[in-house]
Design a protein around this nucleic acid. Structure first.
Ligand code: SF4
Ligand code: SF4
Lengths: 148, 148
DNA sequence: CGCTAAGCAGTATTTTATATACATGTTAAA
DNA sequence: TTTAACATGTATATAAAATACTGCTTAGCG
């Protein structure tokens, strides 16, 4: 059972932007910092932009900014938004041909478990990712802390 | 976020055996019934056997039997046993090189969510898969109900 | 005793999902 | 009008999972 990197990258972008605060960050910069594919990250960013998590600014000196306060960004919501395929087993996905589907009691149980999983994430926001460790995060991400 | 078919197949095998009750079932028979790979199922079966869920009998007229009562088989335990990779994100798996790992607060949160997920499954057993729908399951699996 | 039907074990291939790369376009500041 | 950024679509590569293949072992039956 894995979350996709796509979802984790979305979280990394949000953490990066939260640490950067008011300053714009570029996709290039974030990709470099984490050592991941710039192109892939660009898709994540577009998704986050379309869903209203971040604001993108084109053109020279463009970049990205959070469009909501970190306290307003729920982890559960983000995972629901970015982890496209939350169907844990075959019968919850397209093209199911498990023969016992009509009588199987597992399906609702897995859904219940998934809800419990997401409910935990719903209790946290992006703000919880920062806290006292924000300076350490900034250092790890090689963000020069702006004198604000 | 997916469970592997491997895990789901393990559940299907256990359900099949539970419905069959005292009668032996062969891997061939189960694979046919679900329309899945006999070879893959064989690996699942061996795993279940090594872990003490089922008893295998070789030779002519051999087959499989549950080695514990359905009430004794916890879904949570089974998923922990068969879903080998429960590391949801990169930093929980081998070969992690996410740079913010030392300061990231997501890791414990994902673990907490995973625990909540499994805790739900821990509340159910194989016996809960049967109940009043057992005859329907038997029909769907094309098990001739033994007059027993 | 030897045939046959079952599970056992290891390896190789195929398929699928995911991630990455590439190519080209658009925007806006300098 | 150049340049640094995001936007979009497609193609390729990688990795995980599922499936297939090959040969072996066990045990009942005649
Ligand atoms: S119906 Fe039951 S056995 Fe079939 S795929 Fe869904 S959960 Fe698995
Ligand atoms: S450390 Fe945080 S960002 Fe990095 S892989 Fe783990 S959860 Fe994701």
């Amino acid at each position: 059972m894995h979350l996709t990197r796509y979802t984790d990258y979305a979280l990394r972008v949000l953490i990066f932007l939260a640490v950067k605060g008011d300053e714009r960050a570029t996709i290039h910069e974030i990709a470099e910092s984490f050592g991941v594919s710039r192109n892939h990250l660009m898709k994540v960013v577009q998704d986050l932009s379309h869903r209203g998590y971040i604001t993108t600014i084109r053109g020279k000196h463009g970049g990205l900014l959070l469009s909501r306060a970190p306290e307003e960004i729920s982890l559960g919501g983000l995972v629901r938004d970015t982890e496209h395929e939350l169907g844990l087993v075959e019968c919850l996905r397209d093209g199911n041909d498990c023969i016992i589907t009509p009588a199987c009691r597992l399906k609702p149980i897995f859904n219940e478990a998934l809800e419990a999983f997401l409910a935990v994430l719903d209790r946290y926001t992006l703000a919880d990712m920062l806290g006292p460790r924000q300076p350490q995060l900034a250092r790890l991400m090689q963000i020069a802390i702006s004198p604000a």
